[in-house]
Protein backbone atom coordinates (compact mmCIF):
# COMPACT_ATOMS: atom_id res chain seq x y z
CA UNK A 1 0.00 0.00 0.00
CA UNK A 2 1.52 3.27 -1.06
CA UNK A 3 1.07 6.65 0.39
CA UNK A 4 -0.09 9.49 -1.80
CA UNK A 5 0.59 11.88 1.07
CA UNK A 6 4.18 10.67 1.11
CA UNK A 7 4.55 11.40 -2.60
CA UNK A 8 3.08 14.84 -2.09
CA UNK A 9 5.36 15.83 0.75
CA UNK A 10 6.67 18.26 1.76
CA UNK A 11 3.41 20.14 2.29
CA UNK A 12 4.33 23.44 3.91
CA UNK A 13 2.28 26.50 4.70
CA UNK A 14 -0.99 26.73 6.52
CA UNK A 15 -3.09 25.77 4.85
CA UNK A 16 -1.25 23.94 2.13
CA UNK A 17 -3.64 23.73 -0.80
CA UNK A 18 -3.71 20.68 -3.07
CA UNK A 19 -5.42 21.43 -6.36
CA UNK A 20 -6.60 18.34 -8.22
CA UNK A 21 -7.00 18.92 -11.96
CA UNK A 22 -8.02 16.72 -14.87
CA UNK A 23 -10.64 16.02 -17.51
CA UNK A 24 -14.22 15.33 -16.51
CA UNK A 25 -14.88 11.80 -15.31
CA UNK A 26 -11.24 10.71 -14.95
CA UNK A 27 -11.52 10.40 -11.17
CA UNK A 28 -10.71 13.83 -9.74
CA UNK A 29 -13.27 13.47 -7.01
CA UNK A 30 -12.12 9.96 -6.12
CA UNK A 31 -8.47 11.05 -6.09
CA UNK A 32 -9.29 14.09 -3.96
CA UNK A 33 -11.03 11.87 -1.46
CA UNK A 34 -8.10 9.45 -1.41
CA UNK A 35 -5.64 12.25 -0.77
CA UNK A 36 -7.77 13.94 1.88
CA UNK A 37 -8.39 10.70 3.72
CA UNK A 38 -4.62 10.21 3.97
CA UNK A 39 -3.76 13.77 4.92
CA UNK A 40 -6.22 13.79 7.79
CA UNK A 41 -3.84 11.50 9.68
CA UNK A 42 -1.24 14.29 9.51
CA UNK A 43 -3.38 17.31 10.30
CA UNK A 44 -6.74 18.97 10.08
CA UNK A 45 -7.92 18.57 6.51
CA UNK A 46 -10.66 20.19 4.48
CA UNK A 47 -11.91 18.71 1.24
CA UNK A 48 -13.57 21.27 -0.99
CA UNK A 49 -15.38 20.17 -4.10
CA UNK A 50 -16.40 22.38 -6.98
CA UNK A 51 -17.56 19.30 -8.82
CA UNK A 52 -20.63 20.29 -10.79
CA UNK A 53 -22.10 16.82 -10.68
CA UNK A 54 -21.92 17.10 -6.88
CA UNK A 55 -20.80 13.49 -6.62
CA UNK A 56 -19.11 14.28 -3.39
CA UNK A 57 -22.46 14.86 -1.71
CA UNK A 58 -23.30 11.25 -2.42
CA UNK A 59 -19.80 9.87 -1.78
CA UNK A 60 -19.57 11.48 1.63
CA UNK A 61 -23.24 11.56 2.55
CA UNK A 62 -23.24 15.34 2.72
CA UNK A 63 -26.75 16.63 2.90
CA UNK A 64 -26.39 19.81 0.93
CA UNK A 65 -23.92 22.11 -0.65
CA UNK A 66 -22.28 25.23 0.73
CA UNK A 67 -21.83 24.03 4.27
CA UNK A 68 -18.74 22.54 5.86
CA UNK A 69 -19.52 19.14 7.36
CA UNK A 70 -17.28 17.26 9.72
CA UNK A 71 -16.75 13.75 8.39
CA UNK A 72 -14.62 12.77 11.33
CA UNK A 73 -12.17 14.29 13.80
CA UNK A 74 -9.67 15.58 11.33
CA UNK A 75 -11.60 15.65 8.08
CA UNK A 76 -14.21 18.13 6.98
CA UNK A 77 -15.78 18.43 3.57
CA UNK A 78 -17.69 21.03 1.68
CA UNK A 79 -19.45 21.02 -1.65
CA UNK A 80 -19.38 24.44 -3.24
CA UNK A 81 -21.94 25.25 -5.82
CA UNK A 82 -20.43 27.73 -8.25
CA UNK A 83 -23.69 28.46 -9.96
CA UNK A 84 -25.52 29.10 -6.72
CA UNK A 85 -22.67 31.33 -5.55
CA UNK A 86 -22.80 33.26 -8.81
CA UNK A 87 -26.53 33.69 -8.42
CA UNK A 88 -26.11 34.85 -4.85
CA UNK A 89 -23.33 37.26 -5.73
CA UNK A 90 -25.16 38.82 -8.66
CA UNK A 91 -28.41 39.18 -6.78
CA UNK A 92 -26.51 40.93 -4.02
CA UNK A 93 -25.66 43.57 -6.58
CA UNK A 94 -29.11 43.93 -8.07
CA UNK A 95 -30.02 46.60 -5.51
CA UNK A 96 -26.92 48.52 -6.44
CA UNK A 97 -27.75 48.27 -10.12
CA UNK A 98 -31.27 49.47 -9.36
CA UNK A 99 -29.92 52.44 -7.48
CA UNK A 100 -27.27 53.37 -10.03
CA UNK A 101 -29.32 52.86 -13.13
CA UNK A 102 -32.87 53.68 -12.06
CA UNK A 103 -34.11 53.60 -15.62
CA UNK A 104 -33.18 49.94 -15.78
CA UNK A 105 -35.94 49.10 -13.31
CA UNK A 106 -38.43 50.47 -15.79
CA UNK A 107 -36.92 48.21 -18.40
CA UNK A 108 -36.17 44.85 -16.91
CA UNK A 109 -33.78 44.76 -14.03
CA UNK A 110 -34.55 41.12 -13.41
CA UNK A 111 -33.10 40.31 -16.79
CA UNK A 112 -29.92 42.23 -16.15
CA UNK A 113 -29.03 40.32 -13.01
CA UNK A 114 -30.18 37.06 -14.55
CA UNK A 115 -27.94 37.59 -17.54
CA UNK A 116 -25.09 38.76 -15.37
CA UNK A 117 -24.91 35.31 -13.83
CA UNK A 118 -23.98 33.90 -17.22
CA UNK A 119 -21.63 36.71 -18.14
CA UNK A 120 -18.14 35.54 -19.03
CA UNK A 121 -15.87 35.61 -16.06
CA UNK A 122 -18.48 35.27 -13.33
CA UNK A 123 -17.93 31.58 -12.57
CA UNK A 124 -14.18 32.09 -12.58
CA UNK A 125 -14.58 35.08 -10.32
CA UNK A 126 -16.66 33.02 -7.89
CA UNK A 127 -14.11 30.19 -7.90
CA UNK A 128 -11.31 32.69 -7.37
CA UNK A 129 -13.06 34.27 -4.41
CA UNK A 130 -13.40 30.88 -2.78
CA UNK A 131 -9.72 30.23 -3.44
CA UNK A 132 -8.75 33.55 -1.87
CA UNK A 133 -10.80 32.64 1.21
CA UNK A 134 -9.30 29.16 1.38
CA UNK A 135 -5.72 30.45 1.38
CA UNK A 136 -6.59 32.76 4.28
CA UNK A 137 -8.19 30.03 6.36
CA UNK A 138 -5.61 28.97 8.95
CA UNK A 139 -7.96 26.55 10.64
CA UNK A 140 -6.82 23.71 8.38
CA UNK A 141 -3.36 22.31 7.69
CA UNK A 142 -4.44 20.93 4.34
CA UNK A 143 -7.13 21.83 1.90
CA UNK A 144 -7.76 19.49 -1.01
CA UNK A 145 -9.60 21.06 -3.92
CA UNK A 146 -11.62 18.98 -6.33
CA UNK A 147 -11.84 21.38 -9.26
CA UNK A 148 -14.58 22.35 -11.70
CA UNK A 149 -14.11 21.56 -15.43
CA UNK A 150 -10.60 22.25 -16.72
CA UNK A 151 -11.58 25.30 -18.75
CA UNK A 152 -12.99 27.16 -15.77
CA UNK A 153 -10.16 26.01 -13.52
CA UNK A 154 -7.34 27.15 -15.79
CA UNK A 155 -9.01 30.45 -16.54
CA UNK A 156 -9.45 30.98 -12.83
CA UNK A 157 -5.81 30.23 -12.09
CA UNK A 158 -4.62 32.98 -14.47
CA UNK A 159 -7.30 35.41 -13.42
CA UNK A 160 -5.33 37.04 -10.58
CA UNK A 161 -2.50 37.89 -12.95
CA UNK A 162 -4.92 39.27 -15.52
CA UNK A 163 -6.76 41.30 -12.90
CA UNK A 164 -3.56 42.73 -11.52
CA UNK A 165 -2.74 44.15 -14.94
CA UNK A 166 -6.09 45.93 -15.05
CA UNK A 167 -5.96 46.91 -11.41
CA UNK A 168 -2.55 48.51 -11.88
CA UNK A 169 -3.90 50.48 -14.82
CA UNK A 170 -6.94 51.53 -12.85
CA UNK A 171 -4.86 52.47 -9.83
CA UNK A 172 -2.59 54.61 -12.02
CA UNK A 173 -5.50 56.46 -13.55
CA UNK A 174 -7.32 56.79 -10.26
CA UNK A 175 -4.30 58.17 -8.42
CA UNK A 176 -3.94 60.78 -11.14
CA UNK A 177 -7.66 61.58 -10.93
CA UNK A 178 -7.51 62.01 -7.19
CA UNK A 179 -4.44 64.24 -7.31
CA UNK A 180 -5.89 66.34 -10.13
CA UNK A 181 -9.09 66.72 -8.19
CA UNK A 182 -7.00 67.85 -5.25
CA UNK A 183 -5.01 70.40 -7.24
CA UNK A 184 -8.06 71.79 -9.00
CA UNK A 185 -10.01 72.20 -5.78
CA UNK A 186 -7.05 73.71 -4.00
CA UNK A 187 -6.36 76.18 -6.80
CA UNK A 188 -9.95 77.30 -6.94
CA UNK A 189 -10.01 77.55 -3.17
CA UNK A 190 -12.61 74.83 -2.78
CA UNK A 191 -12.84 72.32 0.00
CA UNK A 192 -10.67 69.26 -0.63
CA UNK A 193 -11.60 65.65 0.09
CA UNK A 194 -8.44 63.59 0.29
CA UNK A 195 -9.57 60.00 0.69
CA UNK A 196 -11.19 58.28 -2.26
CA UNK A 197 -13.32 55.15 -1.68
CA UNK A 198 -12.70 53.87 -5.20
CA UNK A 199 -8.95 54.14 -4.81
CA UNK A 200 -9.10 52.39 -1.43
CA UNK A 201 -11.19 49.63 -2.96
CA UNK A 202 -8.62 49.25 -5.75
CA UNK A 203 -5.76 48.96 -3.26
CA UNK A 204 -7.75 46.38 -1.30
CA UNK A 205 -8.50 44.31 -4.42
CA UNK A 206 -4.89 44.51 -5.49
CA UNK A 207 -3.79 43.09 -2.19
CA UNK A 208 -6.28 40.23 -2.32
CA UNK A 209 -5.37 39.24 -5.87
CA UNK A 210 -1.63 39.63 -5.34
CA UNK A 211 -1.83 37.23 -2.43
CA UNK A 212 -3.72 34.59 -4.39
CA UNK A 213 -1.46 35.03 -7.39
CA UNK A 214 1.64 34.51 -5.26
CA UNK A 215 0.12 31.53 -3.46
CA UNK A 216 -0.89 29.84 -6.72
CA UNK A 217 2.66 30.09 -8.01
CA UNK A 218 4.32 29.06 -4.78
CA UNK A 219 5.33 25.45 -4.26
CA UNK A 220 5.27 26.02 -0.53
CA UNK A 221 1.59 26.98 -0.56
CA UNK A 222 0.18 24.93 -3.42
CA UNK A 223 0.57 21.44 -4.89
CA UNK A 224 -0.95 20.55 -8.23
CA UNK A 225 -2.13 17.01 -8.87
CA UNK A 226 -3.25 16.00 -12.36
CA UNK A 227 -5.47 12.98 -12.91
CA UNK A 228 -5.77 11.22 -16.25
CA UNK A 229 -6.96 7.95 -17.78
CA UNK A 230 -5.18 5.77 -20.35
CA UNK A 231 -7.22 7.26 -23.18
CA UNK A 232 -6.43 9.89 -25.82
CA UNK A 233 -8.64 12.73 -24.58
CA UNK A 234 -7.68 12.63 -20.89
CA UNK A 235 -4.05 12.40 -22.02
CA UNK A 236 -4.51 15.39 -24.28
CA UNK A 237 -5.92 17.34 -21.37
CA UNK A 238 -3.02 16.23 -19.16
CA UNK A 239 -0.57 17.73 -21.67
CA UNK A 240 -2.62 20.92 -21.84
CA UNK A 241 -2.59 21.28 -18.07
CA UNK A 242 1.15 20.55 -17.86
CA UNK A 243 1.75 23.22 -20.48
CA UNK A 244 -0.45 25.65 -18.68
CA UNK A 245 1.20 25.15 -15.30
CA UNK A 246 4.61 25.58 -16.84
CA UNK A 247 3.91 28.62 -19.01
CA UNK A 248 1.34 30.52 -16.97
CA UNK A 249 2.18 29.72 -13.37
CA UNK A 250 5.79 28.58 -13.67
CA UNK A 251 4.80 25.54 -11.64
CA UNK A 252 5.39 21.82 -11.88
CA UNK A 253 2.80 19.27 -10.81
CA UNK A 254 3.58 17.47 -7.57
CA UNK A 255 1.93 14.25 -8.64
CA UNK A 256 0.37 12.68 -11.72
CA UNK A 257 -2.28 10.02 -11.32
CA UNK A 258 -3.27 7.62 -14.07
CA UNK A 259 -6.60 6.23 -12.94
CA UNK A 260 -8.77 3.45 -14.31
CA UNK A 261 -6.00 1.35 -15.84
CA UNK A 262 -7.62 -1.81 -17.19
CA UNK A 263 -6.08 -5.26 -16.66
CA UNK A 264 -4.37 -6.48 -19.81
CA UNK A 265 -6.93 -9.19 -20.63
CA UNK A 266 -9.89 -6.86 -20.18
CA UNK A 267 -8.29 -4.15 -22.32
CA UNK A 268 -7.51 -6.72 -24.99
CA UNK A 269 -11.07 -7.99 -24.94
CA UNK A 270 -12.36 -4.42 -25.25
CA UNK A 271 -9.93 -3.77 -28.09
CA UNK A 272 -8.37 -0.84 -26.23
CA UNK A 273 -5.13 -2.52 -25.28
CA UNK A 274 -2.93 -0.70 -27.80
CA UNK A 275 -4.44 2.66 -27.03
CA UNK A 276 -3.96 2.07 -23.31
CA UNK A 277 -0.38 0.86 -23.79
CA UNK A 278 0.50 3.99 -25.78
CA UNK A 279 -0.99 6.23 -23.10
CA UNK A 280 0.86 4.40 -20.33
CA UNK A 281 4.12 4.60 -22.22
CA UNK A 282 3.74 8.33 -22.63
CA UNK A 283 2.65 8.71 -19.01
CA UNK A 284 5.72 6.83 -17.77
CA UNK A 285 8.00 9.09 -19.79
CA UNK A 286 6.83 12.25 -18.02
CA UNK A 287 9.44 13.31 -15.46
CA UNK A 288 7.24 13.90 -12.44
CA UNK A 289 6.22 11.76 -9.51
CA UNK A 290 3.41 9.53 -10.70
CA UNK A 291 1.15 6.63 -9.75
CA UNK A 292 -1.29 4.35 -11.49
CA UNK A 293 -4.61 3.13 -10.10
CA UNK A 294 -6.26 0.11 -11.71
CA UNK A 295 -9.86 0.01 -12.78
CA UNK A 296 -11.87 -1.36 -9.86
CA UNK A 297 -14.71 -3.70 -10.65
CA UNK A 298 -17.10 -2.36 -8.09
CA UNK A 299 -17.67 1.24 -9.12
CA UNK A 300 -16.74 3.32 -6.14
CA UNK A 301 -19.69 5.24 -4.91
CA UNK A 302 -19.03 5.40 -1.21
CA UNK A 303 -16.14 6.68 0.85
CA UNK A 304 -15.21 3.16 2.00
CA UNK A 305 -15.03 1.88 -1.59
CA UNK A 306 -12.87 4.77 -2.68
CA UNK A 307 -10.47 4.38 0.21
CA UNK A 308 -10.09 0.73 -0.78
CA UNK A 309 -8.60 1.86 -4.09
CA UNK A 310 -5.49 2.85 -2.15
CA UNK A 311 -4.43 -0.77 -1.79
CA UNK A 312 -4.03 -1.02 -5.56
CA UNK A 313 -1.99 2.11 -6.18
CA UNK A 314 1.23 1.42 -8.07
CA UNK A 315 4.02 3.98 -7.86
CA UNK A 316 5.44 4.67 -11.31
CA UNK A 317 7.92 7.36 -10.33
CA UNK A 318 8.63 8.15 -6.69
Amino acid sequence: MSSLAGLLSPLEGRPHVIIVLGKGGVGKTSTSILIASELKTQGKTLLVSFDQAKHILRYLNLRRSMEIVEIDDNLSACQLDIEASARELTSRYSDLVAELFPSLTVLNLEDVTKVLKYAPGVEEEVFLRWLADIYENREYSYVVIDTPPTGISLRTLVLPRLYLIWLDKLINIRERIVSLRYVISKTLGREVKVSDPALNKLYELKEVYSKVKDALSSASRTSYVIVTNPEPLPMFELREILNFLDSELMMKPKLLVMNKVLPRDVATKLGTYDEQARAIEEFKSIQYRSVMIPYANNPSSRLEDIVKLREFIVVVRG
Partner: peptide, 12 residues
Protein backbone atom coordinates in the same frame (compact mmCIF):
# COMPACT_ATOMS: atom_id res chain seq x y z
CA UNK B 1 -12.28 43.14 -15.26
CA UNK B 2 -15.09 40.69 -14.45
CA UNK B 3 -18.66 41.96 -14.18
CA UNK B 4 -18.59 41.24 -10.46
CA UNK B 5 -15.44 43.23 -9.93
CA UNK B 6 -16.98 45.98 -12.02
CA UNK B 7 -20.03 46.11 -9.78
CA UNK B 8 -17.87 46.05 -6.70
CA UNK B 9 -15.96 49.08 -7.94
CA UNK B 10 -19.16 50.80 -9.03
CA UNK B 11 -20.46 50.61 -5.49
CA UNK B 12 -17.69 53.04 -4.54
Amino acid sequence: VSPILSLELLST
